[in-house]
């Protein structure tokens, strides 16, 4: 179980990781896009960070509301395609947990189902289009398939981020069919998709941060 303040902590960590990878994401985007993914995402998550301060001050503990505010902030501040895409992802994810003050791994599955459906609806992309979907859909599939398996939350989140990592790496070998990179045709092959990369980074952050939080619980601190 994660509390609302744990979720806020995860979102803050996402901002930190995106900022750390600002240059890397922009570098990937300069090869096949408009060279702004890292800058745009950092801008968006910086704005989210200050909204999270408001949320903490107002003691908002509705996790759906927290995710909704995050999504709306990203839509208004990112600027590139990632704004509507991640914005819709967080807003659809929010609907899955509206009113909840705690979330478990099944809630997380619902969050990710909402996020994936939101991204696909907004961007009209499918798997193998060389987009965020290539990282997100395999991650959601792991959650779907995990229902009957006896894995603890951390093992499962590790599998989720590994699936996203594999999906991200898969984008290197394929031709872009959506987004700015699609204008490059076959020249997009050989380059890793920046959107799939940021999606992996976010899922990796969820795994690492939840592991950190749970580690503290076990150690009593």
């Amino acid at each position: 179980m994660l509390s609302a303040s744990d979720v806020i902590y995860v979102l803050e960590k996402m901002g930190t990781v995106i900022a750390e990878n600002k240059e890397y994401l922009t570098e990937l985007d300069s090869a096949i896009g408009d060279a702004d993914h890292g800058i745009n995402m950092t801008k968006g998550f910086d704005a989210v960070k200050s909204k999270l301060e408001d949320i903490k001050q107002k003691n908002i503990d509705n996790i759906g509301e927290i995710l909704k505010i995050t999504g709306m902030t990203l839509v208004s501040t990112v600027g590139g395609a990632a704004g509507p895409l991640y914005g819709t992802a967080f807003m659809k994810a929010a609907l899955a947990v509206m009113g909840k003050t705690e979330v478990d791994i099944r809630d997380f599955q619902n969050i990710m189902e909402g996020a994936l459906a939101g991204v696909k609806m907004r961007g009209k992309a499918e798997i193998s289009d060389k987009t965020m979907v290539d990282a997100l859909e395999p991650a959601v599939n792991i959650l779907r398939e995990s229902k009957d398996k006896e894995l603890n939350e951390i093992e499962l989140l590790n599998n989720v981020r590994l699936a996203a990592l594999q999906g991200m790496e898969y984008t290197k070998g394929i031709q872009a069919r959506k987004g700015r990179a699609s204008y490059l045709g076959a020249r997009s092959i050989g380059h890793q998709d920046p959107g799939a990369t940021s999606s992996y980074l976010l899922l990796n952050t969820i795994y690492q941060t939840v592991e950190e939080i749970k580690g503290k619980d076990i150690n009593g601190g």
Binding site: D34, D36, N40, S76, V78, G79, G83
Partner: peptide
Amino acid sequence: TSDGRLGTDFQ
């Protein structure tokens, strides 16, 4: 965008 970057802004 509202802060002068190339891009689009929902607001």
